[in-house]
C-alpha cells in the first residue's frame, strides 16, 4: 500500500466535482458510481478504522459497515460537506460505538505488516537502534510499542492523532469530522502527543 501523504489527503476541487457527480448518480441507483466512491476512499476509511482499533479484522468490518451505512443514507446526503468528510464522520462514529462496546475488554492487537519502504525511510532508520540485529525486527518492535501506546489514549485523542499526524488532515477538517471546534482539536492533539511522548520516552528522546 502506498503511504498516505498529507499532500494527497486534501481532495482537489476537480475530485470534489467528480465526487458530487458520482454521488448524484449513486443517489439515482447507479451502483457503479457508488463502487467508484468506495474505491476512492476505502484506503483512508480503512486506515482510520485500523489506526483507531489497531486490529485488522475489526477495521475491515467497521470500514465495510461505514460504506454500507453511507449507501443506505445516501438519499439524505445534501452535499453540504464533501462526500469523504461525510463518510469519515460515519466511520468515526461507527468506530466510537465499537470502542464503547469493547471498553471493558483488553484490546487485541492484530497489526498489519509494515510496507517494504518503511525500512528505507531515513527518519525511521534513525529511530531503530543500531544494536538491533535486524532492522526489520526493530521496526516491528517500534510498531508494536507505538500501537500499544496509541491504545492507551482515549478514542477522541487517538482519532485526532490519527487524522492529523498519520492521515494528514487539517484541523478544520478534523473538527468537521469530529463535530467539535478547531480549538478543541488542537488542545486534544497537544495533550495526546504529550501522553504518547511520556509513554514512548525511551524511543523518542
Amino acid at each position: 500500500m502506498e503511504p498516505i501523504h498529507p499532500s494527497a489527503e486534501t481532495a482537489s476541487s476537480s475530485t470534489e466535482i467528480s465526487d458530487r457527480t458520482l454521488v448524484a448518480r449513486a443517489q439515482m441507483g447507479n451502483d457503479s458510481a457508488f463502487e467508484e466512491l468506495v474505491r476512492r476512499y476505502q484506503q483512508r476509511i480503512y486506515g482510520l478504522c485500523y489506526h483507531l482499533t489497531s486490529n485488522h479484522e475489526d477495521a475491515t468490518d467497521l470500514a465495510q459497515d461505514a460504506f454500507v451505512k453511507a449507501w443506505k443514507a445516501l438519499r439524505t446526503f445534501k452535499g453540504d460537506s464533501s462526500f469523504y468528510t461525510w463518510v469519515y464522520r460515519i466511520a468515526y462514529n461507527s468506530v466510537l460505538n465499537h470502542l464503547k462496546q469493547r471498553r471493558y475488554r483488553t484490546p487485541h492487537l492484530s497489526l498489519d505488516d509494515l510496507d517494504f519502504n518503511a525500512e528505507h525511510t531515513p527518519d525511521l532508520v534513525e529511530l531503530v537502534s543500531e544494536k538491533t540485529p535486524r532492522r526489520e525486527a526493530g521496526l516491528m518492535e517500534l510498531q508494536k510499542r507505538l500501537n500499544e501506546a496509541m491504545q492507551k489514549l482515549s478514542p477522541e485523542h487517538r482519532a485526532v492523532v490519527t487524522l492529523h499526524d498519520i492521515q494528514g488532515l487539517a484541523h478544520d477538517e478534523i473538527a468537521r469530522i469530529m463535530d467539535c471546534n478547531p480549538g478543541t482539536v488542537r488542545s486534544r492533539l497537544f495533550y495526546a502527543r504529550q501522553q504518547l511522548q511520556a509513554w514512548l520516552s525511551d524511543i523518542t528522546p
Binding site: E35, H51, L196
Partner: peptide
C-alpha cells in the same frame, strides 16, 4: 521525534489485494 515515529504507522498496510476484495465485499453487502 514522536511525529517521525508516528510516520511509521503510514507504512502499515493490509495484505496485497485487500482493497480489491474489500470493494467487492462492500458491493456484495449492498
Amino acid at each position: 521525534p514522536l511525529t517521525r515515529l508516528l510516520h511509521l504507522k503510514r507504512f502499515e498496510a493490509p495484505p496485497p489485494g485487500f482493497h480489491r476484495r474489500f470493494r467487492a465485499r462492500v458491493m456484495t453487502r449492498i
